[in-house]
Design a protein around this nucleic acid. Structure first.
Length: 676
RNA sequence: GGCGAGGUAGCUCAGUUGGUAAGAGCGUCGGAUUCAUAACCCGGAGGUCGAGGGUUCAAUUCCCUCCCUCGCUACCA
């Protein structure tokens, strides 16, 4: 671990289509920041690299929806994210962006390098093309009927109803989201990274890192055993880094090709010395990411770097799991999130309270839950009661007995020596924990130093000793102050704002990590600053307000997010082709080996037929016997899981994606009645 | 269904290359204290370490089966 001369630390490039929330912080930016601040305090040569990821289809869609340009979208969120990160104390050396000129040049050059050396495979594939708009359509720009679940609003890459991933050509009745026209298939050429051929080298690389976190290794091995496939590194799109080849036309680099190169371009912008941070074997490259990025940072990006050949590979990728919020998954679209810019407004000067809570409860080994009650409790019973209180009582006593001047330590008792021993040991434990990416443990240890302080004060009662043993008071308070000074050092990576306040209280300058464990940080007679509180209690009211806000904003946002747009018009004749009838379910059973499917026998009034339906997630078979349904009876039969299905049950889908039977309200719609 | 990660005190989470390690913080109860933001300090209660089986002198820790949660993946006409 010590053979590295310098560090390149990256934090996942946040996608510039929305603000940053606590999940992002806890999963990636905060641990990265803690690590980097620690390294800096140790005097290590380190660059901390990040920036906004500004390409890709979702941004173009967002721009179209809002009637602005993609550039305007990314400008807005780039600035907002940058400001938020700064305010919460994420100390990037640079927060760049992938729309920058340097990045376009760097990414192009990288692509050309691989291209010129014949790394890519050129493949011609059929892609949908919008003749009216004269352009190829990104997967997301094509909607149509999902071949799996019949959802008529499936996207070309994925059906959000059944969750299956799709190819655009899988869609039935594809429609261009740009013009509303039916797109046509055209041949187009794209360049693929042959991950299949690189697999042995990638395996060798992964196997060389048994020290990586189990969740990271597990994911990688899962991918490797499923065998890697060539992956297209270019797309037919006009928003992104242009493919730097003649005749490439309207093509850009795949966002997952260009985004990680963003780390390199940002470093380039930061320093002319950038190469030593990327090409020198003595540099340790660390990627902090969330678990959704594991495959890109552990497999695809390293594969790109290997293919290039000049670059070092990541030495560790300490990915975190996900943070839940009040028991539910954080969801941008449902607005179930704590947005950091809002937090900073609602809780001014409390950056460290959030940093503390998120670090103490970080999803290091499994998904964790953030609750506002926990946030309150961490503030009140840990930051206020343990840390703040210890510092305050020490400070108050020193002012009371010594007018704010550091008293000399006179002679040490057994108790004193034990306390001094803790001052020396705890920083060692913190160091070890940080070095192995155990940030919650590290923080616990740091807090233990404050606990030690409280215990020490209580046991030695300097407020009593004053009357009959002034020397004792001096020594006890001296040691207590040394603990405070040590706290200002070891807390700095986690809570930089608090660390600074502590230094103001103690009236001392910032010191490096080697100061940690030093029991003589404050000299005799040194004048302390004036007293103030490090933290304040948070009462129930603001907490309840946040909880209410969360629930309210969710319910408000849900409907308009989830209601799909009206589809293209159809004629009466077209509709007339659909033969929809009332029927009743006679039997229902699960389909073996399928989680979503039920095999139903339905009385249609015309006949009794078998229908396979993807509703098993929502309805137990025994509960729907006798259920009246609407069904499309003249749909072409189709084999599903070996069972011939004759027709399709009509279901309503609510905003959660739950499917609900469409049922005649009155009994005299007998089986076989047609629905018009 | 397949793959991966988890299921440990009321809550949030550590831990075990198999044997005095069943732990921490918070919460709770009792006590002590008043320098301190009803804070601090001491002590107690609380868990058959998801369930069942196996290997072993010994399993929470290894093996098998099953259940539950999360992620990816398959099935959705």
């Amino acid at each position: 671990m010590n053979h590295f001369k310098r560090y390149t630390v990256t934090a996942a490039l946040p996608y510039a289509n929305g603000p940053v929330h606590i999940g992002h912080l806890a999963g990636c930016y905060l641990p990265a920041d803690i690590y980097v601040r620690y390294l800096r305090a140790r005097g290590r040569d380190v660059v901390f690299i990040c920036g906004s990821d500004e390409h890709g289809v979702p941004i173009t869609i967002k721009a179209q929806k809002e009637g602005i340009t993609p550039q305007q979208v990314v400008d807005k969120y780039h600035e907002q994210m940058k400001e938020t990160f700064e305010k919460i104390g994420i100390s990037f050396n640079i927060f760049s962006r992938t729309s920058s000129k340097t990045h376009h040049e760097t990414a192009s050059a990288f692509f050309l390098n691989l291209y010129n050396r014949g790394i890519f495979e050129e493949l011609e594939t059929d892609q949908y093309f919008d003749e009216k708009k004269g352009q190829f359509l990104a997967d997301r720009y094509i909607t149509g009927t999902c071949p799996n679940c019949g959802n008529t609003n499936a996207y070309g890459d994925q059906c959000e109803k059944c969750g299956s991933s799709l190819n655009p050509t899988d869609l039935i009745n594809p429609v261009s989201a740009l013009s509303g026209e039916k797109p046509v298939l055209r041949k187009t050429k794209n360049w693929f990274l042959p991950l299949d051929k690189l697999q042995p080298k990638i395996e060798e690389f992964i196997n060389g890192h048994p020290e990586w976190k189990p969740n990271v290794l597990g994911q990688c091995k899962s991918w490797l055993t499923q065998k890697l496939q060539p992956r297209a590194m270019t797309r037919d799109l006009d928003w992104g880094v242009k493919v730097p080849l003649k005749g490439a036309g309207n093509k850009v680099l795949y966002v997952w090709f260009d985004a990680p190169i963003g780390y390199i371009s940002a470093t380039k912008e930061l320093t002319p010395d950038w190469e030593k941070y990327w090409k020198d074997k003595e540099t340790r490259l660390i990627h902090f990411i969330g678990k959704d990025n594991i495959v890109f940072h552990c497999i695809i990006f390293p594969a790109m770097l290997m293919a290039h050949g000049e670059y070092i590979l990541p030495d560790n990728v300490p990915a975190n799991e996900f943070l839940n919020l009040e028991g539910q998954k954080i969801s941008t679209s449902r607005n179930w999130a704590v947005w950091l810019h809002e937090y900073l407004n609602d809780f001014p000067e409390k950056q460290d309270v959030m940093r503390y809570t998120l670090c103490a409860n970080a999803p290091e080994t499994k998904d964790n839950d953030f609750t506002w009650k926990d946030f309150q409790s961490r503030n009140n019973s840990e930051l206020v009661a343990i840390l703040g209180n210890f510092v305050h009582r020490t400070h108050v006593l020193v002012w009371k007995f010594f007018e704010g001047k550091v008293p000399a330590s006179v002679e040490y008792t057994k108790n004193d020596l034990a306390a001094l021993e803790e001052i020396k040991k705890i920083p060692q434990r913190i160091t070890e924990a940080i070095e192995t990416f155990h940030f919650r443990d590290a923080l616990t240890e740091a807090m233990n130093l404050a606990r030690t302080g409280n215990k020490y004060l209580t046991e030695n009662e300097p407020w009593k000793a004053n009357l009959n043993n002034p020397k004792r008071v001096q020594t006890v308070l001296n040691i207590s102050l040394q603990i405070c000074a040590n706290l200002s050092v070891v807390l700095k990576p986690f809570m930089p704002f608090t660390s600074e306040k502590l230094r103001t209280l103690l009236n001392i300058a910032e010191s490096g990590w080697d100061a940690a464990g030093n029991t003589q940080l404050l000299n005799e007679n040194h004048q302390l600053g004036k007293s103030f509180m490090l933290f304040e209690r948070i009462e129930d009211e603001p907490i309840q307000k946040q909880i209410d806000k969360l629930h309210n904003s969710m319910s408000v946002q849900m409907p308009n997010k989830a209601i799909p747009a009206v589809k293209t018009p159809v004629t009466f004749n077209e509709f007339g082709k659909m033969d929809i009838r009332i029927g009743a379910i006679l039997t229902a059973e699960r389909v073996a080996g399928a989680d979503k499917l039920l095999k139903l026998k339905v009385d249609t009034g015309i006949d009794i037929r078998t229908v396979v339906s993807g509703i098993a997630k929502y309805y137990a078979p025994e509960k729907i016997i006798g259920q009246r349904v609407c069904l499309l009876v003249n749909l072409e039969p189709r084999k599903i899981r070996g069972i011939e299905s004759h027709g399709m049950i009509l279901m309503a889908e609510n905003s959660d994606g739950k499917l609900i039977f469409v049922t005649p309200a009155e009994a005299d719609a007998e089986n076989g009645s047609s629905v018009k």
